[in-house]
């Protein structure tokens, strides 16, 4: 299994973004998804900047994929999308059928998590259009994955979202602007003030959701680190962690070591607690409410690996 870093969902300033990705070169992440996926107004980086980062990361041995907007409403957004799809150097992650349409028969692509792949017939269709990898929508769990892995089209890679805040919804409305009593067209880029999104709590102070511009995310962090052995058994090709403003290298390090078999999932789970925003959740994987947390792997015959099992630092053993 390979380890990927999903696209950056938040709006950070140019220097922070550059620094974040330059540091990735020295981490054990295999695949990096680059580009703006939430809001076309966010232009801290120009298209050339993203391509320059892509070059740097590729030179550092990473596979680079350019991600695209999930919600496309304007002609200007389609023009920008077309330029990405026709970049000629890097693979593209399609997050809307507009991108799938542009890429069909033109270049191999990744069907991103916002393409609704719920069954084998859809996966087959995407393969015919040129998808070489699909990312399972976060609402799906183990049952769907097992079924789809069985009849997977030849050479189709499967990627699963295993760590980070869940992308739950997109709207025409900017919720960050709304919270500041600003219209979207004069948003003042307030989302830039929230490097990990704006927390939304219930009136009982329960952490509930995260507002990220036009996107709504979970407040808690999805964490499937305990399921990595199951994912490997099921033939999953790539596991994805999602960017956050802090501890990214440490998170990547923990996942890379579990993927390589150098760290027990149980130990990794404890190590990740310190890096988890909000509470953990894994409910979608188990077929239930996404926000719920079982924290236990599905029953399976997993051989206990050697090691102390007591370390809570995620230190190498």
């Amino acid at each position: 299994m390979k380890l990927s870093l999903g696209p950056l969902p938040y709006f950070w300033d140019r220097e922070t973004v550059m620094d974040f990705y330059h540091r990735l070169v020295d981490t054990p992440v295999d695949i990096v998804y680059l580009g703006e996926v939430i809001c076309a107004k966010r232009r801290a980086l120009r298209p050339e900047d993203w391509l320059e980062l892509a070059d740097t990361l590729r030179a550092g041995g990473k596979e680079v994929v350019l991600s695209t907007l999930a919600l496309i409403e304007a002609e200007s957004e389609l023009s920008a999308l077309r330029r990405v799809c026709e970049n000629g150097q890097f693979r593209v992650e399609a997050n809307d059928m507009a991108a799938v349409n542009m890429l069909t028969g033109a270049a191999p692509f990744v069907a991103g998590p916002h393409i609704n792949t719920y069954n084998a017939a859809t996966l087959e269709l995407l393969a015919e259009c040129g998808a070489f990898r699909w990312v399972m929508p976060v609402e799906q769990g183990r049952e769907v994955l097992e079924a789809l892995q069985q009849g997977r089209p030849a050479d189709m890679q499967t990627e699963v979202f295993v760590f980070g805040r869940l992308p739950l919804a997109f709207s025409a409305r900017c919720f960050t602007a709304r919270a500041h009593n600003l219209p979207k067209d004069q948003c003042e880029f307030r989302c830039g003030d929230y490097p990990d999104g704006m927390p939304l709590a219930t009136r009982e102070q329960q952490d509930f959701l995260t507002l990220n511009g036009i996107q709504v995310q979970s407040a808690g962090t999805c964490n499937l680190v305990r399921e990595l052995p199951v994912l490997a058994e099921l033939g999953v090709s790539v596991v994805r962690v999602s960017p956050q403003s802090r501890h990214m290298s440490a998170i990547i390090d923990v996942f890379a070591r579990v993927v390589d078999g150098r760290l027990q999932p149980e130990v990794a789970a404890h190590a990740l607690e310190a890096y988890t925003q909000g509470g953990p959740c894994d409910g979608y994987w188990h077929g239930g409410a996404g926000m719920s947390w079982r924290g236990q792997p599905e029953p399976r015959a997993y051989p206990a690996s050697a090691g102390s099992g007591k370390a809570d630092t995620g230190a190498d053993r």
């Binding site: 869940l166 739950l168 919804a169 025409a172 409410a289």
Partner: peptide, 20 residues
Amino acid sequence: IMVEGRCALSSYVTGKSPNA
């Protein structure tokens, strides 16, 4: 108010969504 077909808020809380 969310893009239909792209909203998992209901399943996040209850396990059941419009999509599925």
